[in-house]
Design a protein around this nucleic acid. Sequence first.
DNA 1: AGGCCCAACTTGTTCAGACAAGTTCATCGG
DNA 2: CCGATGAACTTGTCTGAACAAGTTGGGCCT
Lengths: 249, 249
Amino acid sequence: MAARHEEIAEELRRAIDREDYTVGSLLPAETELAAHYGVSRGTVRQAIAALTTEGLIGSRQGARRVVLAGRRSQSFTELCSFAQWAHAMGREATGHVVSSAYHPATPEDSERLQLPLGTRVLHILRVRGLGGRRVLLERTVYADWIAPAVERIEPECPSVTQRLYEDEGLVFAYGEYLIDAVAAGAQDAELLGVRRTSPLLRVRRVTTTRAGRPVEWSEDRYRSDAVSFSVHNSTGNNALARKTGPAMS
Amino acid sequence: MAARHEEIAEELRRAIDREDYTVGSLLPAETELAAHYGVSRGTVRQAIAALTTEGLIGSRQGARRVVLAGRRSQSFTELCSFAQWAHAMGREATGHVVSSAYHPATPEDSERLQLPLGTRVLHILRVRGLGGRRVLLERTVYADWIAPAVERIEPECPSVTQRLYEDEGLVFAYGEYLIDAVAAGAQDAELLGVRRTSPLLRVRRVTTTRAGRPVEWSEDRYRSDAVSFSVHNSTGNNALARKTGPAMS
DNA sequence: AGGCCCAACTTGTTCAGACAAGTTCATCGG
DNA sequence: CCGATGAACTTGTCTGAACAAGTTGGGCCT
């Protein structure tokens, strides 16, 4: 948080959060903000660009900027780490390893983790709870180079992400998420405590380091009555995309 | 597409798409790109910033940039408009209005569309097909100021978004999407041709103009075997956020 | 009252330069 | 052989300036 433009972005976020600027109202002009914070216009633009990609602010050339939304989105860390997300909400997250085993990488594993076919990768099935309720089933595959560190973590550890950071200095930097819905199978139903065929939100994701090296990929199944996902989008910043399923191709 | 930095961004996207730069490889340095395109470093940075928020490229201070992904994400227009999305894939989209009626705005409508309570808003239920298959159920609520223009559109019009642009010059600029899973109800099952209780992907969304004025909000239910959503995310650009459902609060 | 036009304002684009901070790699010394 | 050092390289941050392009609102004319 050293950079001045990040400080300014954070101040603006907070100002929006406490409704100094209410939704629908206009933000001060760039030149005013620049004068107020004692920086150049370029620095203010950098700060504002961040809020724009977060979907908090709308921009049109010639007109003052508009506050679009009040809630601030979570940090990437909170998205990656179930436990840190829970903590930010003041809730307690639990984790429980159901099974853990090495398998040779399938073509799918190989492509997603960018590893040679047949490399021994670590499959882990975890049940995760939020405030005492089972909420999420994680079927994760870890790349071979991080698997030993994952194995050393105790089965009930609430935050694997945090442990990997503390022990290995590993930080997640990029992720791709594919979201759809599936009916709960027999194992899903038993482990999550829901009826078979009840709808689950399925998130398939790949997470990579800052250098672009894939660390893990996972198929997560959420109880749809407990968790949902939200996305901000705009012209010029479209993180979200619709895709046809396998049945359509 | 007048701006030079957008042209450069587009050229880089295409270069990545045709694998001049393969996934995992390094991009040329800023100074090289600047020299190559005959622009200043700042302009190259703007172009690259776009690719970064799209998740195509990873950045770390001091090290060359890495190509993270090959596929380019869809434009915001394609996300907003079912028909334009289908068209971009070379498929045909259909639309069919099942019901259409005015109702006084509920507190929910009022908040999402930023209209006074009780304003007469237009509720429309549409079934949408892709390549001859029914795939999506749209329950949309239009703000009063755009409702007359929507009513004038014929019931079988495949692209409402495009018609609103042609007739009214209306463009969608910002959207917020809330994604979860639900079981198909009796009406859903009949209109989509699936079994009751089969899982559907539910997307609740609000769309606004460039000026931040809400135009419509909608609850869309997709056949989960036909459509899914994908999101790119990274530190510094987190459009995606996880939320607890109503059952958890 | 209604419509038109222009001036003031605001954001978008681009440049050139300077320094800070992190990475990479080759070289040197143990 | 291995580790440490440092120079070269690369990205991040910030400034100050200038012009382009779009929006807004007030004043003027009909």
